[in-house]
Amino acid sequence: MPQNGRNILLLALMLLLACASIVSRAHAEEVTSTGIAPYDPGREAVAREKALHDARRNAVEATSGGIIDASTTVRNNMLVSDNILSRAAGYVSEYTVLSERKSNGLYEVTIRANVLVDSMRDDANTIRRLVALQQTPHVIIKIASETPAENRTQARRAASLLADKLKKSGLTVVDKPLTGTELELNLALEQASTPATVLGVQMMVNEISLVTDIVRPSDGRTLASSTETVKVNGLNKLQALEKGTKECVQKTWKRLARALSRSWEEEMESARTLYVTVLGLDSKANAETLAGAFRSSVPNVETAALQSMQEGEARFTLRYKGQPRFFTDEISMRYFRNRYGEFAVTSVRDNVITLTRQ
């Protein structure tokens, strides 16, 4: 190759390396941090690991200022920050121990760590969305099947009135599932009319009942119920139904808003069993490692056990505190992918989840 050609090739390689270095620095920030942990004689190895964990967490905390969102409340920013720090190990790509010492019952380690700031920022946005979702009940209002056909038009009007009032109270009302976490509010409107004579005057006593059930869609379980009944006198049954419906909505909506908020909070925090199938694992050892990753790295996983492994298909049972959707969001976050690889969410149906190793 001519000299000029070699020089051009050399220059191109140098530029490529320089660009790679710039990209690397853009994605990782170098931080020096110190961690400490108490130790007992003979248990220095355990103390050292705890001190290293503390140092990595402190390195992540030192670079976490960029995840603060000015449009988010102080409380929610603190929640996001705490959630990021609880996942700190997933944001340190590598570290070097600079010094370590024991003094006055403490083990101290100083490290130089590369913190994946972009990963942290991406996950902060996901966590911010999940925090907001957990705090705001999401509801779908449906007309119950037992509502008589002649009452359905008025029942839809009742649903619209109720939706407006629930929205004003801070709840989110949607027409169809958007997040997979919504509660259903099933609404039935009933009318019973009885002829009566009052002071010699013929009239009709109309008893209007608005029955609402808060239902978990995944299994159809009723979480709370409410019935409001009013009486309206009048010969015009349609006018009586309209008036009685408005009175029922007015009397019941605040109680319903409180019940929905309580049910939502319980659903967000309740523990449930998840049945997770992971395709594409090449060994039982890798499946056992993944079970350990679920237990140690994913917040709110209380237990995780490998049930079977056959032909690359691993089946796990997990005890998880939260919605199935939140678990799939967790394993899609960068902190988990950085440590354990990519997993595509193939399907989520109730508490049954299928993932595929990429």
Results as ranks from 00 to 15, higher is better:
179 T>M: 11
150 E>V: 09
266 E>C: 06
169 S>L: 08
304 A>V: 02
39 Y>N: 06
119 S>C: 05
65 G>Q: 06
154 Q>L: 09
3 Q>D: 15
108 E>F: 01
221 R>P: 02
340 Y>P: 01
262 R>C: 06
14 M>P: 03
283 S>M: 01
58 N>H: 12
277 T>Q: 07
326 F>D: 15
70 A>M: 07
325 R>I: 13
342 E>A: 10
287 A>R: 00
127 I>E: 09
31 V>M: 11
64 S>T: 10
235 L>Y: 08
225 S>A: 05
185 L>Y: 01
201 V>Q: 13
16 L>V: 11
358 Q>S: 15
112 R>N: 15
75 R>M: 09
108 E>R: 05
119 S>W: 04
67 I>R: 05
114 N>I: 09
349 R>W: 01
200 G>V: 02
227 T>M: 07
19 C>Q: 10
163 A>H: 03
198 V>S: 09
203 M>R: 07
141 I>V: 11
291 A>R: 03
223 L>G: 00
180 G>R: 02
63 T>G: 08
261 S>R: 14
198 V>R: 12
16 L>Q: 10
271 A>D: 00
20 A>M: 13
253 W>H: 15
130 L>W: 04
18 A>D: 10
334 R>A: 14
17 L>R: 06
24 S>F: 15
48 R>P: 03
298 V>S: 07
60 V>S: 00
305 A>L: 01
28 A>P: 02
332 S>F: 02
295 R>F: 09
317 T>F: 09
333 M>C: 03
37 A>V: 00
56 R>N: 09
194 T>F: 03
358 Q>A: 14
77 N>A: 10
175 D>H: 08
21 S>R: 04
346 T>S: 12
232 V>M: 02
302 E>P: 00
264 W>I: 04
125 N>G: 11
158 A>K: 04
228 E>L: 07
39 Y>H: 05
275 Y>T: 13
245 T>I: 00
333 M>G: 10
352 V>I: 15
63 T>K: 14
218 S>A: 13
188 A>N: 07
6 R>L: 12
29 E>F: 13
234 G>Y: 12
32 T>K: 13
131 V>M: 04
39 Y>Q: 05
248 C>I: 01
269 E>C: 08
245 T>E: 00
236 N>V: 04
333 M>K: 12
14 M>R: 05
166 L>C: 03
258 R>W: 06
90 G>A: 07
351 N>S: 08
101 R>C: 04
306 L>W: 05
293 A>N: 08
6 R>F: 07
287 A>F: 06
